[in-house]
Design a protein around this nucleic acid. Structure first.
Lengths: 149, 149
DNA sequence: ATATATGCAAATCATTTGCATTCCT
DNA sequence: AGGAATGCAAATGATTTGCATATAT
């Protein structure tokens, strides 16, 4: 069961394991939509109606420091994701959705090594965001241009 | 003179050119330290003592939309940079300094093309941050480990 | 047993907004 | 001239903090 791995990784970091923390960890780890704090709060509140935002904020900080999840700060608010291995985030300008790009890991690792060698900067983790138009939003715009053709 | 290029690019976007806007644009374009809004305000206030933070915020938004500069949101506050071509930001965990990695452009463009082809996501711009230890902060830590050797 | 997490309310602080006055074009 | 930018003050909203109570180890 997935819980045991989470519990183990938290305990290794000297972090106490509570039902709330497990629920928040699961909410993020089971998500692929890079949820906001509010969204995580709403989802977890279904199981813990009395949980407050303060607990969610505190726990997300703990989970980030433990390396289980990653915070993605944006201009308006942060979002969170469970994919801590090198990858590209595809951030849609139109709908705001964020998705992970498949198979983007190798080239990022190569870039990491190259930069590391040339600059002697010791990379611990990275964030790679590509901003643009997702397929759905392209389709919603392009027909107008195509019609004008 | 650099001003003329800035003026031209702003006017092309239908943006009015004011002395304050030019000063803020110059402050960012002449910087390499990825300054915060507060820092930009302090620097520009030397020439415009009455300028407020509200004007700085407003202008940074205008300059970003005009494509002259790029906002880099972080958890605590945003920072701004003038390098809008593809590159890697080296964000030091220790001192908080941010520097651009030289010669990182080509491999990012390749990554862009690859992801673009595989996912049909239309990339408009990107942000690539490598977090880790700069050479100075490594040197401040390592001697302890080396001594233990 | 004891240090730490949770829940609640209040505080903080970056960023935004409304409006009167001033300034580009 | 006329609409948009500036400066100032007040508002907003995400995130943090303090403290009493409950809980993990």
């Amino acid at each position: 069961m997935i819980q045991s791995a989470v519990v183990q990784q938290l305990r290794q970091g000297g972090v106490r394991v509570t039902p709330q923390r497990l629920a928040i960890a699961e909410a993020v780890l089971n998500s692929t939509d890079h949820p906001t704090v509010q969204q995580i709060h709403e989802r977890v509140q279904q199981h813990f109606p009395s949980m407050t935002l303060a607990t969610v904020y505190s726990t997300l900080g703990v989970l980030s420091k433990s390396g289980l999840i990653q915070e993605l700060p944006f201009a308006k608010q942060s979002r969170y994701e469970s994919n801590v291995s090198p990858h590209v985030n595809l951030v849609c300008i139109g709908c705001g959705n964020i998705a992970d790009a498949d198979d983007s890991s190798d080239i990022i690792i190569r870039l990491r090594d190259q930069v590391s060698n040339e600059t002697r900067f010791q990379v611990m983790w990275q964030r790679v965001d590509f901003h643009g138009w997702c397929r759905t939003c392209q389709a919603a715009i392009e027909p107008a241009a195509a019609a004008g053709q």
